[in-house]
Simulated assay, not measured.
Amino acid sequence: MNILPIVISSLCTSIGAIPILFIKNVSHKGKDVMLSYTAGIMVAASAYGLIPSAIKLSNTTILIIGILIGTLVLTLLESLIPHTDLDNSKKDSGNSNLILFIIAMSIHNFPEGLSVGISYGSNDLELGPLVSFAIGLQNVPEGFLIALFLVIQNVNRCKAIFFTTITDVIELCAGIMGVFFGKFFEFVIPYGLAFAAGSMLFVVYKELIPESHGDGNERASTITFILGFI
């Protein structure tokens, strides 16, 4: 089994974080545009890749259950883990909060990696490339946003990329685990795909869209959201 596609899909998060080394100052409008563009890509990854694949392997009922579980888990995480908005401009909020933020993102990436791995471990030869592409596509802007959040919290830029890479490792391990256990847990695939879709839709509507409309940049944000979706 060639795990290279799984590795590439996982590393897309770190690749997305690299531009943070060269971006010195991000204006509020520039950040709003990037947030909305990321939202468009994440919705597209859900609509074009994850949701159709989940329906193809199961049915609408399982799709709805998976999406609701993803939404519920993200809701609980936000309630239980101290939450700091992406737009927060305050100084360092404390190492404990940053660690909890990394843990939360790692938990979010685990089902994504597991979905990619199980997809490659399944009998459907077309599913693996489709899911890895969809997850990898949304991992790029996700990695940038993670790094941007950490830099806003006064974390060194190189350390921000390092912490972002930690979430990569979690996703990669989940992917490899999914490959080896895919034959035994193939029934989990549609739930995992729907879970990832529900998680991304939650993040888009709860965080990215409100943040991108918070400073009078609604029109530019709406246009870049559509471009990201396309």
Rank of each mutant, 00 (worst) to 15 (best):
V7K: 09
L208E: 03
I81N: 06
G178D: 05
G121T: 10
T222E: 13
G192N: 08
E211I: 11
L72H: 03
V116D: 00
I67M: 14
I51E: 04
V7Y: 06
I102K: 05
K90Q: 12
I8V: 15
L68T: 15
S53Q: 11
F185D: 10
I102L: 12
F202N: 08
G30Q: 05
G143F: 06
N139S: 09
T84H: 15
I55S: 05
V116T: 10
E78C: 00
M105Y: 08
L86I: 14
S132P: 06
I176R: 02
G49V: 14
L145V: 07
G66Y: 08
L77E: 04
S132H: 03
N2L: 09
R219F: 09
Y120I: 15
I81S: 08
P5S: 09
G128D: 07
A45Q: 08
Y120N: 06
V33R: 01
S119R: 08
N139M: 12
E218D: 13
M200C: 00
L74Q: 11
I146H: 02
N156D: 12
S9C: 14
S53D: 06
A17E: 07
G228E: 05
T167A: 10
L201N: 04
P19S: 09
I135N: 01
L86G: 03
L21C: 05
D85Q: 07
D92T: 14
A54D: 01
S132D: 08
L35W: 02
F185W: 07
L130K: 15
L77T: 04
I65M: 11
V33T: 06
N59F: 10
I161R: 04
L57P: 01
I6A: 05
